[in-house]
């Protein structure tokens, strides 16, 4: 099913659920009961909705969003890879411990990824090893300052439906 079709399948309760609870669910004894009450459905119905939305892939997971800076060390890195080495280099990077994002982008620096580690020392070690393994200098771009820390943003349902 196309994503447009998927969005059209979402009813009003689904949309309110996503709008509200992408921003955080209550850390109380029965969180789904509390969510259900605020949406005007039963706890069981709410759990079924969350299960369905997860199975549809609309919700990635009902789970923790960590503050990477508080929970460990991480760094954005880019490399410039010639076409004939693309697949090999991407495979090495994806297999590197702590790599949790890896994207091709249209630029001379064409491979972009994030390396995480429990602390600065092990991050440094991972990056040094990776650089040696790839025989390619890493463009290392640590975050200096964050202006935007909340990844939840308003979902424009009408636009998503019409797209």
């Amino acid at each position: 099913m196309t994503s447009d079709g998927l969005v059209a399948c979402l009813d009003d309760v689904d949309r309110r659920l996503l709008d509200r609870y992408q921003r955080g669910l209550p850390l109380v004894e029965r969180p789904y009961a509390a969510m259900a009450e605020s949406l005007g459905v039963t706890e069981q119905a709410l759990i079924e909705r969350l299960t369905r939305l997860t199975e549809m892939g609309i919700i990635g997971r009902v789970g923790a969003v960590f503050n990477h800076r508080q929970a460990g060390a991480s760094e954005l890195v880019a490399v410039s890879v010639p076409d004939h080495r693309r697949e090999a280099v991407a495979a090495i990077i994806s297999a590197c411990p702590g790599v949790n994002h890896n994207y091709w982008r249209e630029h001379r620096y064409n491979l972009w990824f994030v390396v995480t580690a429990p602390d600065d020392t092990s991050l440094e070690l991972r990056l040094t090893r990776l650089e040696a393994q790839l025989h390619t200098p890493l463009l290392r771009l640590p975050m200096v300052q964050s202006f935007h820390i909340d990844l939840a943003f308003a979902l424009p349902w009408t636009e998503l439906e019409d797209a």
Partner: peptide
């Protein structure tokens, strides 16, 4: 940061 129903933005279009 929060415990949340994390939407898959790609899947949403």
């Amino acid at each position: 940061r929060r415990m949340a129903a994390v939407p898959n933005h790609y899947r949403l279009g």
